[in-house]
């Protein structure tokens, strides 16, 4: 195996060539914040929380996708890096509900983020969608990490039930013409729920428990719905 050596926050590490900066940092014991990066989906480099400074490079590098180069000298924290991370976190927290994204809440503290500075700005807080017996979709909590779309498509299930709606700031996760999940190609594998980091996608049982429902109510709710679906098809 070919290896390269580089320096991250003053610490020297040796990694396999072809490793990302993020992987190298992990080996060096350095934590780089990530949001859209996820081990089990292909990397997209969307959130840019993971940007780092590479000496000699003209721009900041997204650690989750940029490859580590031999002899690089990398800083993972600086005033400029923090400024970017803080601003992204503030914009995100002023747009959606992060109450069930513990990692992000911690990062907000870590970077002294003040989301209130964007108060009055447009938010994305659509109503919760409860259209099937398996999971609910509460996109007011969606942090747009794309994972659900990825696992529903080529990264796992090949069901292609969900994709994007809108564009720009209004980009959302959507089904064909906004149809209810049972009317899509969804196979209810639950993979999207499993990868969602924000509480936007949640098992129906968990959702009902949180609402204070009793176990038998939960059972009858989901069973009845299942039955009604069977009857229709």
């Amino acid at each position: 195996m070919e290896t390269i050596a580089l320096e991250i926050d003053g610490k020297r590490v040796t990694v396999a060539s072809g490793s990302t900066i993020l992987a190298a940092a992990e080996k060096a014991g350095t934590d780089i914040p990530v949001l859209c990066y996820f081990e089990h989906t292909s990397s997209k480099g969307l959130c840019r929380l993971c940007v780092v400074e590479v000496e000699g490079a003209t721009t900041m590098q997204p650690a989750c996708v940029a490859l580590a180069q031999n002899d690089s000298i990398i800083q993972t924290r600086s005033e400029n890096i923090d400024r970017i991370r803080r601003t992204i976190l503030e914009m995100l927290a002023s747009t959606v509900d992060l109450s069930e994204s513990p990692d992000l809440l911690e990062m907000l503290l870590d970077y002294d983020a003040v989301p209130e500075r964007f108060q009055g700005g447009k938010q994305l807080l659509p109503d919760l969608i409860d259209d099937n017996p398996v999971f609910i979709r509460d996109y007011a909590k969606c942090v747009m990490c794309w994972r659900c779309v990825q696992v529903c498509a080529e990264d796992a299930q090949y069901a292609f039930a969900i994709n994007f709606g809108g564009r720009g700031f209004e980009t959302s996760i959507a089904t064909f013409f906004g149809k209810a999940m049972p009317e899509t190609t969804c196979v209810f594998c639950g993979q999207c729920v499993g990868v969602c980091p924000s509480g936007a996608l949640k098992a129906k049982t968990e959702h009902l428990l949180e609402l204070g429902a009793l176990p038998e109510e939960i059972f009858s709710e989901t069973r009845m719905r299942r039955k009604s679906k069977r009857r229709r098809t």
Binding site: L46, L92, M144, F164, G168
Partner: peptide, 17 residues
């Protein structure tokens, strides 16, 4: 803000703000 594609966070939210 109208033309941002909405892929990366800095531009998606930055152009709006």
């Amino acid at each position: 803000s109208h033309e941002s594609c909405g892929k990366c966070f800095p531009c998606r939210m930055g152009t709006q703000r």
